[in-house]
Amino acid sequence: MGRSFRYLLAAATSANLADGMLLAGAPLLAITLTRDPALVSLVGVATTLPWLLLALHAGAIADRSDRRRIMVLTSFVRAAALAATAAAVAMDALSMPLLVAILLVAGACEVFNDTSAQSIVPMTVGKESLGRANGRIVAAQTVGNNFVGGPAAALLVGVAPMAVFGAPALLYTAAGLLLLGMRGAFTPAKVSTAPLRADIATGLRYLMRHRTVRDLAIGAGVLNLCNAAYFAVFVLWAVGEESAIGMTSGQYGVVMAVLAAGAVTGSLLANRLADLFGENRTLLTVCTLNSLTLLVPVLVPVVPAVYVTAALLGVSGAATNVLIVSLRQRIIPGELLGRVNAAYRLIGMGGQPVGAALGGVVGGLAGLQVVFVGAVVMCLAVMPLVSRALARKAVPVAV
């Protein structure tokens, strides 16, 4: 692994530590403002809605621009926005509208940053090293998102709420500076001169014609929609005296750490498991395990069961991510990678704001258990589609 990848990995670690603090801190701050499931679910909606609105444009821009420059710019924009929000918190001016607005800004930057990040990895390592490189990046993301960021945010919510935004602002600044240390050319060799709309159409056309990529995207969309519904209201099931489990904010932060430990393990073992049992069998197994594990805190609403759930979700989720991303990077042409990745993630993640909103509405009307069980049933129902997609020969197609 060369210099550019090392700087990319360091930047990803810093940025994802910031992401983790927002991921854990935002819902914990939200429940200090309201206990209404529909309002709390707006945190999940705001975080994921930009994927639905901006993913295709982000992919087209990543395929005709310097991908590193996009990542640097989005890092600094997030830093500035969060620093301003930290100042508002210091003045006791935090409200649900402000929280939702800042999460929309951070989410929009994430769309452009992550689309470019997945597309830039093959420009820093060879194809034979993609699995190892993605494993390290997912491990770094997990450590930042959950192992450190989650517990830190849970602690800060109680003692220094301003730092929930101020610390990520500093970390995004550090990520932007680290990205400047990368050396090389990060603009695709073949840059389209067609109108942006035509480039977007090319990416969509490729995805729709490639049956494996298309069906995996549909499967990911259903799984992410269900998970968004589940986790949009899970904090109400887990945290507080009124909740079913009765966790404290600190215990919820430990859950994030356990999730991270499992995810680091899964990201580092993914390729070894695929070598031992085959890529297709490993992917289908970990996807199914991930779905079934969501039932554990519902059937056994005690703190230890939540820790077990977090560990299993971490292992299975990270392994799935590493194998799917590596598969896409191998079979999609480099000059189309940004657009097809964006189209994939539009389908795969575009349902998240819908799921988060549904989770809040259904949770408020029918109860949280209905949300949780319904999410698991839908996840399991999509497994045959994932199985058929993996059984097909994954080869590039003509656009």
Score class of each variant (00 low, 15 high):
residue 249 S to R: 13
residue 164 V to M: 03
residue 309 T to D: 11
residue 164 V to N: 00
residue 179 L to W: 04
residue 76 F to I: 11
residue 10 A to P: 01
residue 173 T to K: 00
residue 94 L to R: 00
residue 88 A to N: 01
residue 171 L to W: 00
residue 117 A to G: 05
residue 184 G to W: 11
residue 4 S to Q: 11
residue 297 P to L: 09
residue 335 E to P: 02
residue 327 L to N: 05
residue 315 V to I: 15
residue 206 Y to H: 08
residue 305 A to S: 12
residue 18 A to E: 01
residue 213 V to D: 05
residue 258 V to D: 08
residue 202 T to P: 00
residue 292 L to F: 08
residue 388 R to P: 01
residue 33 L to N: 04
residue 136 R to F: 13
residue 26 A to I: 01
residue 14 S to N: 07
residue 166 G to W: 00
residue 219 G to P: 03
residue 393 K to I: 14
residue 22 L to M: 13
residue 42 L to V: 12
residue 167 A to V: 15
residue 257 A to M: 13
residue 182 M to D: 09
residue 334 G to I: 13
residue 88 A to C: 07
residue 93 A to T: 07
residue 230 Y to P: 00
residue 342 A to D: 03
residue 73 L to A: 15
residue 267 S to W: 06
residue 9 L to K: 06
residue 107 G to W: 06
residue 245 I to Y: 04
residue 186 F to K: 07
residue 322 V to L: 09
residue 138 V to P: 00
residue 320 T to K: 12
residue 6 R to S: 14
residue 260 A to I: 10
residue 104 L to N: 03
residue 76 F to R: 04
residue 399 V to Q: 13
residue 200 I to S: 05
residue 374 G to W: 06
residue 330 R to A: 14
residue 316 S to P: 03
residue 130 L to A: 08
residue 371 V to K: 02
residue 85 T to Q: 03
residue 76 F to G: 04
residue 228 A to M: 05
residue 11 A to R: 03
residue 182 M to L: 13
residue 181 G to H: 11
residue 307 Y to I: 12
residue 343 A to R: 04
residue 30 A to S: 10
residue 129 S to Y: 10
residue 15 A to E: 08
residue 71 M to I: 14
residue 358 L to M: 15
residue 169 A to W: 00
residue 128 E to C: 07
residue 41 S to Q: 04
residue 86 A to H: 01
residue 384 P to N: 12
residue 162 M to T: 00
residue 307 Y to F: 15
residue 186 F to R: 07
residue 303 V to C: 02
residue 257 A to K: 02
residue 335 E to Y: 15
residue 208 M to C: 11
